[in-house]
């Protein structure tokens, strides 16, 4: 186990050590202590390593992650796992706005609540939120899946493309061009798998969820749909 004291050694030293890990490495387990809400902790990692952050983080923790499993033993500031490519990020507490924004792959698990704009413009990432998500979540979400065990705020999935949104609780309102869709067998299978991987299978069952997706009216400009914009 490599232990790194962020307060003592600083962010640049941490991130350059993590960026130095390429391909196969013997240093597969890392622990970061004293994060104290610092920005960009473990951003840009590209190695199959396991990183545990002992405390709460600031902006952009685990941004652009590839391959790594990053666990935050606290809450995460804005933009956690932003533009993640692959790997897994698990937040034990809450996540601030735009968690998982523009993520292209991998799995983001938030065990508390996520605030506004969760999964905005997601492009292939899977997100599992054990609590609630805030307003404008999944705005312009293009692909990937989000599973929300709690409630969703206003304007869920506004201007949505092909991401699949699964919400167990109440949706305060749907955004433009986002509609409820039927649950088919393949959706139950996706949920079964994501609840398991998201460490939520003891809390929820696939049949408790509703699915929301794009009505596909706003993909191309059509004068007949002008009132929906």
């Amino acid at each position: 186990m490599q232990s790194f004291d962020l307060a003592a050694n600083g962010l640049r030293a941490l991130n350059s050590a993590l960026h130095g890990l390429k391909g196969q490495t013997n240093m597969t387990a890392w622990e970061i202590i004293n994060p104290k809400g610092a920005h960009a902790i473990a951003a840009g990692v590209d190695a199959p390593v396991d990183i545990t952050v002992r405390g709460s983080t600031g902006y952009y923790c685990a941004g652009m992650n590839k391959q790594a499993t990053i666990r935050i033993k606290g809450s995460a500031g804005p933009g956690v796992a932003e533009n993640m490519m692959s790997g897994t990020v698990i937040v034990d507490g809450d996540a601030s706005q735009y968690a998982g924004a523009t993520g292209r792959g991998g799995l983001l698990v938030i065990k508390g609540n996520a605030s506004s704009r969760c999964g905005i413009s997601m492009k292939g990432i899977d997100i599992v939120v054990h609590g609630n998500i805030g307003h404008m979540s999944c705005f312009m979400a293009q692909s990937g899946n989000i599973v929300v065990l709690g409630d969703a705020g206003d304007a869920l999935g506004d201007s949505l493309y092909e991401a699949r949104l699964f919400v167990r609780g109440r949706v305060k309102s749907l955004g433009a061009d986002c509609i409820e869709k039927e649950m088919r067998p393949e959706h139950y299978a996706i949920l079964e798998e994501l609840l398991r991987r998201g460490e939520a299978d003891h809390k929820a069952r696939p049949e408790q969820f509703r699915r929301y997706g794009s009505a596909r009216k706003l993909y191309n400009f059509n004068i007949d749909n002008a009132s929906a914009y």
Binding site: K36, S56, G58, Y59
Partner: peptide, 13 residues
């Protein structure tokens, strides 16, 4: 003991 506000969590640590 208190109520605290910060633009970021960093301010409260």
């Amino acid at each position: 003991q208190y109520v605290a506000f910060g633009s970021e969590y960093r301010a409260l640590v």
